[in-house]
Design a protein around this nucleic acid. Structure first.
Ligand SMILES: [Mn+2]
Ligand SMILES: [Mn+2]
Ligand SMILES: [Zn+2]
Ligand SMILES: [Zn+2]
Lengths: 160, 160
DNA sequence: TTATTTAATGATAATAATTATCATTAAATA
DNA sequence: TATTTAATGATAATTATTATCATTAAATAA
């Protein structure tokens, strides 16, 4: 974890930026909530708990900077706010997302899965792919299981 | 074209909405600019040319309605505005996009390409896919060709 | 038809996310 | 130490979108 911070520090230095206390606090919040998809406001509130003097503008600026350096990815799930997602270290591409239209959960797919598709796109459309965004909208495994259980229950009642 | 409007009219009626003159004017603008990716404001300005009395709120409402009925898809390319895209008639899923990071062009891929990936996601993640968004970011064929031409030019100069 | 209810519209106010501004502070450098 | 530069925090400005509400159009009932 500390090493992760160190590596991010080096990435910043490499682009001649400093890891100021505010920036570090922001990065820590992102690391501590890696599985979430926080908005700038979300990050701001969490950072404030540990560094109450920080300003919202600084959080926006830091998130913008981290996006520029491809340390985080900015993503929009269509709810009117941008969300920020730590990129897996060394990942060539952004990971994929599963958005549940029933419960709102957002799950992640770290596997690439797109290698073949990208090969086709690069060749057939002569498009040099640098990154991508792939989001599936549908019903998550939790909701699916819940429905299956309900279904089973109903059948049992019917048999009585 | 007229038949396309008629079918949309029927879709609206099927959900007990009317195709009012304002709604029709909005749909026509979308049909006439099918290859574009217009924002609500863009649509508003274009509709105004033919139906100057229309209000911005009505355009927003119409676009929302059309999205609900899956006649258009709402998409966000990360530039802070929602864009509206007519769905291909009878298409199960939204088409894909190629966003050029050099010239800003947005091209479309109508082919599915994701069948295999979706089969994997449905099975391995027990996720019931209803729709998706897939956008590639990179360098478009026009910019690629331009670079190739420049490269060739430079080589020729060198040989002299 | 005319009266009445309902749906849709247009103008505009309100909201909310993001960006810009600017004075202040911290850090780096001379 | 003095000076330049980078970063910050407060807050104003901007902008896309949504909410409100009076008015109009359409559908329906009488
Ligand atoms: Mn994610
Ligand atoms: Mn499109
Ligand atoms: Zn769910
Ligand atoms: Zn291009």
């Amino acid at each position: 974890m500390e090493s992760r911070i160190d590596r991010i520090k080096k990435q910043l230095h490499g682009a001649s930026y400093k890891l100021t206390p505010q920036r570090e606090a922001t990065v820590r919040v992102l690391l501590e909530n890696e599985e979430d998809h926080l908005s700038a406001e979300d990050v701001y509130l969490l950072v404030k708990e540990k560094a109450p003097e920080i300003g919202l503008a600084t959080v926006y600026r830091t998130l913008e900077l981290l996006t520029e350096l491809k340390i985080v990815d900015k993503i929009n799930f269509g709810d009117g706010v941008s969300r920020y997602d730590l990129r897996q270290e060394g990942a060539a591409h952004f990971h994929h997302h599963l958005v549940c239209i029933e419960c709102g959960a957002v799950d992640e797919i770290q596997e690439d899965l797109l290698e073949d598709v990208e090969a086709v796109v690069e060749k057939r459309w002569n498009f040099q792919i640098k990154d991508h965004r792939l989001t599936f909208h549908g019903i998550c495994w939790r909701c699916n299981e819940k429905h299956a259980a309900e279904e089973k229950n109903k059948e049992e009642k019917n048999r009585e």
